[in-house]
Design a protein around this nucleic acid. Structure first.
Length: 620
DNA sequence: GCGTCGCTAAACATCA
DNA sequence: CTGATGTTTAGCGACG
C-alpha cells in the first residue's frame, strides 16, 4: 500500500511519465533519448539523493550495489574484450558461449554482495526495484559493449574474408562460422537485453501462460508459437532454474529482474522502474505512464486481468485488485519459483527476439531485392516510434517487433498507451485509414498479436479481407475466417460470440464481401473494387496526411502501399525512401506457421481498436 | 449539430 | 431441436 501510494505520487510527477520509455530508451535516440539518459540520471539520483533519510538508506545500498555491479560488468567486458580481440578461431566459439554466462554472473554477483542485508532492509518490491535499476545501468554498459564487439566481429570477419583468401578454405570457413556464431550469440544477448528494456513497459505482451521449467530450453527449438506451451506444462517451479538459482543466492532478482522487469510484480504496478521519492526512498513506480494509464486505475495491473492472476501458469482467481495484490505478494514473491518462471519468460522472449531478428533480416533482403532501399532510412527505432505516435494515437500497434533493431525502445505494444485500458471500442479513423496498411501491421506485429491479447487496430472488414486475401485462392468459408482470426490474434480467442457476430455482420453488410457458392459450401471472397470504393485514397492532397502517412508507414506498410500504388497509381509518394523502415518489420509476410500465405495485397486499414486485455488464450 | 464510420447487440431466417 | 450461417436493424461512440 505504501508503495502504491508512493508510486502514485511519483506517477503524477511529470518526469515520471516515460519511465519505461526511459528505461528502454537508453539505447534509443530520438524522443526517447532524453528520457533514456534521464533514466540513468534518475538512477543516480536515487543512489545519491537518497541519504536524506539518514539511516542506511536503500539508496545507499543501491548505490553500493550499482558500483559493484558496474565493476563486475566491466570486468566481464574486459574479459570479453580480451577474449575476442584474440580471434583464436577455436576460441571464438568458446568465447561466444562464454558470453552468456558472464552476463548473468555479472548481473547476479552484485546482488550477492549484500543479499541478506538488503533483504532485511528492503521489501521485495523495493529490492526488485533496486535491482532493476542496477540492471538497467548494466544493460546500458553491456549494450555498448555489445555494439563494439559486433563491430569488431564484423571487422574481423571482413578482414578474414579478405586476407584469408590464401588460407585453406576450411580454416577460413571455420573461422567465419565461429565468428558468426559469436555474432549470433551477441545478438541474442543484445536482444535479450533489449527485450528486458522493453519489458519494462511491455507487460501486456506476456505470453500468457507460464510456469515452466525450461531453463535449459534448447533455444533453437523453441518456436515462438509454442511458447505458450512452454509455460504451461506444469508448475514444477522450483526445478527449472534451480542450479542457477542456487549459485545466485538471492538471484531471482538477478535473472528475473534481468530478464524482465516483470519480476517486479509483487507490488503494485506494472512496468516498474525505480525512482526516488522526494524523501529519498526508493520506490517503485509505473515507469511509463502513457502506456500504463490503465494500470493506474486501481482496477488494473499488468498481471491481473479478467479477475485472475496472469502470472504465468497461475490463473488464480482474484476478486479484486486488492486481493490480487495480496496474492501476488504471497504467491509470486521473490523466491526461487518466481525466479525460475522469470527465467522461462525471459527465454520465451528471447526466442521471439531471435525470430524477429531473422525475419527482419529476411525482410531487408526482400526489400533490397525489390529495390526499396531498406537500409537507408532512419534507424528503425525512429519510424516505429514516430508512427506509434503519429499514426496510432493509442499506441496499440507497436509491439516488440522491431526489436531486431538493436536499439528500439519499443512501446509496449499493448500498453502503448491509452487504448489498452479503455473499456469500449476505441476506433480511429483518419489515422489508421491512411497509415496502417493492415498487411504491414500484421506482418510486423504478427507474433505480437498472436500472443498478446491486444485488439488489433483494424476494422473487421479489413481483417476479413486480409484473411481472405492471404489464401491462395482468395476465398474462405466463414469458419475459416473465424479460424484465421483466432489463429492470428490472441484477442479473438475470447468473446467469440461478439466478434464472430461482428464478422458475419461485416460480411453481410459490406458489398466488398461476396458470398460465392462453392463445392464445399459457401465461401467468401473480396471484391477489391468495392473495397477500395469504401476508402478512396485521398492522401495526395493534404500535407498532413502525407506526413502522417510517411511517419506512420513502416516498412511493410510501405510495401503494402507500394503495391497499392502499383495497382492504382494513387500513391505517388510511396517510393520515397524516407518512408522505409527496415528495422521495424519483422517480416512482410505472416510467419510461416500460418498458412504460409503472404499477404499479397496491401491493406489499407480502417482503424478500430479497443480495450485490450490479456487473457489466457482459449479457443472458443 | 450532423453525417459517416465502425462496433456491438440482437432478432430473425435458413439450412444441415 | 440445435448450432452454424447469413441478413438486417438499432444504438452508441468517435470523428470530421
Amino acid at each position: 500500500m505504501m508503495v502504491e501510494s508512493a508510486s502514485e505520487t511519483i506517477r503524477s510527477a511529470p518526469s515520471g511519465q516515460n519511465g519505461v520509455g526511459s528505461l528502454s530508451g537508453q539505447t534509443d535516440g530520438g524522443g526517447g533519448g532524453a528520457t533514456g539518459t534521464a533514466t540513468s540520471g534518475t538512477g543516480r539520483d536515487v543512489a545519491t539523493g537518497a541519504d536524506s533519510n539518514g539511516e542506511m538508506s536503500p539508496a545507499e545500498l543501491l548505490h553500493f550495489q550499482q558500483q559493484q555491479a558496474l565493476q563486475v560488468a566491466r570486468q566481464f567486458l574486459l574479459q570479453q574484450a580480451s577474449g575476442l580481440s584474440s580471434p583464436g578461431n577455436n576460441d571464438s566459439k568458446q568465447s561466444a558461449s562464454a558470453v552468456q554466462v558472464p552476463v548473468s554472473v555479472a548481473m547476479m554477483s552484485p546482488q550477492m554482495l549484500t543479499p541478506q542485508q538488503m533483504q532485511q532492509i528492503l521489501s521485495p518490491p523495493q529490492l526488485q526495484a533496486l535491482l532493476q535499476q542496477q540492471q538497467a545501468l548494466m544493460l546500458q554498459q553491456l549494450q555498448e559493449y555489445y555494439k563494439k564487439q559486433q563491430e569488431q566481429l564484423h571487422l574481423q570477419l571482413l578482414t578474414q574474408q579478405q586476407a584469408g583468401k590464401p588460407q585453406p578454405k576450411e580454416t577460413l570457413g571455420n573461422k567465419q562460422l565461429a565468428f558468426q556464431q559469436q555474432l549470433l550469440q551477441m545478438q541474442q544477448l543484445q536482444q535479450q537485453h533489449l527485450l528486458n528494456l522493453q519489458r519494462q513497459g511491455l507487460v501486456s505482451l506476456q505470453p500468457s501462460q507460464a510456469s515452466g521449467p525450461l531453463q535449459t530450453l534448447p533455444q533453437a527449438a523453441v518456436c515462438p508459437t509454442d511458447l505458450p506451451q512452454l509455460w504451461k506444462g506444469e508448475g514444477a517451479p522450483g526445478q527449472p532454474a534451480e542450479d542457477s538459482v542456487k549459485q545466485e543466492g538471492l538471484d531471482l532478482t538477478g535473472t528475473a529482474a534481468t530478464a524482465t522487469s516483470f519480476a517486479a510484480p509483487p507490488k503494485v504496478s506494472p512496468p516498474l522502474s525505480h525512482h526516488t521519492l522526494p524523501n529519498g526512498q526508493p520506490t517503485v513506480l509505473t515507469s511509463r505512464r502513457d502506456s500504463s494509464s490503465h494500470e493506474e486505475t486501481p482496477s488494473s495491473h499488468p498481471l491481473y486481468g479478467h479477475g485472475e492472476c496472469k502470472w504465468p501458469g497461475c490463473e488464480t482467481l482474484c476478486e479484486d485488485l486488492g486481493q490480487f495484490i495480496k496474492h501476488l505478494n504471497t504467491e509470486h514473491a521473490l523466491d526461487d519459483r518466481s525466479t525460475a518462471q522469470c527465467r522461462v519468460q525471459m527465454q520465451v522472449v528471447q526466442q521471439l527476439e531471435i525470430q524477429l531478428a531473422k525475419e527482419s533480416e529476411r525482410l531487408q533482403a526482400m526489400m533490397a531485392h525489390l529495390h526499396m532501399r531498406p537500409s537507408e532510412p532512419k534507424p528503425f527505432s525512429q519510424p516505429v516510434t514516430v508512427s506509434a505516435a503519429d499514426s496510432f494515437p493509442d499506441g496499440l500497434v507497436h509491439p516488440p517487433t522491431s526489436a531486431a533493431a538493436p536499439v528500439t525502445p519499443l512501446r509496449p505494444p499493448g500498453l502503448g498507451s491509452a487504448s489498452l485500458h479503455s473499456g469500449g471500442p476505441a476506433r480511429r479513423r483518419s489515422s489508421d485509414k491512411f497509415c496502417s496498411p493492415i498487411s504491414s501491421e500484421l506482418a510486423q506485429n504478427h507474433e505480437f498479436y498472436k500472443n498478446a491479447d491486444v485488439r488489433p487496430p483494424f476494422t473487421y472488414a479489413s481483417l476479413i479481407r486480409q484473411a481472405i486475401l492471404e489464401t491462395p485462392d482468395r476465398q474462405l468459408t466463414l469458419n475459416e475466417i473465424y479460424n484465421w482470426f483466432t489463429r492470428m490474434f490472441a484477442y479473438f480467442r475470447r468473446n467469440t460470440a461478439t466478434w464472430k457476430n461482428a464478422v458475419r455482420h461485416n460480411l453481410s453488410l459490406h458489398k466488398c464481401f461476396v458470398r460465392v457458392e462453392n463445392v464445399k459450401g459457401a465461401v467468401w471472397t473480396v471484391d477489391e473494387r468495392e473495397y477500395q470504393k469504401r476508402r478512396p485514397p485521398k492522401m495526395t492532397g493534404s500535407p498532413t496526411l502525407v506526413k502522417n502517412m510517411i511517419s506512420g508507414l513502416s516498412y511493410g506498410a510501405l510495401n503494402a502501399s507500394y503495391q497499392a500504388a502499383l495497382a492504382e497509381s494513387s500513391f505517388p509518394l510511396l517510393n520515397s525512401p524516407g518512408m522505409l523502415n527496415p528495422g521495424s518489420a519483422s517480416s512482410l509476410l505472416p510467419l510461416s506457421h500460418d498458412d504460409g500465405g503472404a499477404p499479397m495485397e496491401p491493406l489499407p486499414s480502417n482503424g478500430s481498436s479497443s480495450p485490450p486485455r490479456l487473457s489466457p488464450p482459449q479457443y472458443r
